[in-house]
Design a binder for these strands. Structure first.
Length: 221
DNA sequence: AACGCGGGCAACCGCTGGCTC
DNA sequence: AGAGCCAGCGGTTGCCCGCGT
């Protein structure tokens, strides 16, 4: 049995006060991030380290972009979700100033609903009734990280892409998936391709190497 | 005006994987 | 080799607010 990450008796929970935010911000400005476990004590906060980390990363960091998502950001999230599944931190990494929590919330509250309305299964980005793989169809409602994170979903639809170039760095794994059949980005139905299966396998084989490749992708396709 | 309901968001919880000893 | 620690991640929860009745 693992020890709790902190002494729960002396720990504040719930919403952060302005004073707490200030203490954490001041501390990190002076000492920088890192060693979250020791930060609460050092900063004079009655919070657990995890809570401090979350507050900083999702709310207090100076480079966070807040407010509504632009259309091109939304398009990018959809495309990346088709590629990466529920790997929110990876998706957020491609959206400067956005946090994984924000992206996740936005997906669950806006995009997911929107896709369902359009008759697209948000879990596999395919139309609801057809072409659903057995393991994917079970994901309706509660999708498990197992089904989404480990199995790579292949992009089979496209949004009305904002006609912009995005300079994004991808891991080898991601770029393997991207590199061949070109992203069908028009919310149209793509027939399952044997090519795609082999690419998925290839991607999994390559996943050991996380060496990042920097590539330009043209989202106009 | 009061109430219920649903959406949005911040925060928590528990698991995982990497690292160290 | 394996046990323990830690940061990071994704899923889930709970609160708040706006809207409809």
């Amino acid at each position: 049995m693992r020890k709790p990450c902190c002494d729960k008796a002396n720990i504040n929970k719930g919403a952060w006060s302005k004073q707490e935010d200030q203490k954490l911000t001041d501390y990190i400005r002076v000492h920088g991030e890192g060693c979250w476990r020791s930060i609460p004590k050092a900063a004079g906060l009655h919070r657990c380290g995890k809570s401090c980390r979350l507050r900083w990363l999702n709310y207090l960091r100076p480079d966070i972009k807040r407010g509504i998502f632009a259309e091109d950001e939304e398009d990018l999230i959809i495309k990346l979700h088709a590629l990466l599944g529920n790997r929110w931190s990876l998706i957020a990494g491609r959206l400067p100033g956005r946090t994984d929590n924000e992206v996740k919330n936005y997906w669950n509250s806006h995009i997911r609903r929107k896709l369902i309305k359009m008759g697209i299964d948000p879990n596999n980005h395919r139309p609801h009734q057809s072409f659903s793989r057995p393991h994917a169809s079970s994901a309706e409602g509660a999708s498990t990280s197992e089904s989404l994170n480990k199995g790579h979903k292949v992009p089979v639809f496209k949004s009305r892409a904002a006609a912009t170039h995005h300079r994004i760095s991808f891991t080898k794994e991601e770029s393997t998936i991207i590199s061949s059949p070109p992203l069908n980005l028009d919310l149209t139905i793509a027939l399952p391709s044997p090519m795609i299966g082999s690419l998925e396998d290839k991607a999994i084989q390559n996943s050991e190497s996380t060496k990042t490749l920097v590539m330009e992708i043209d989202l106009n396709c």
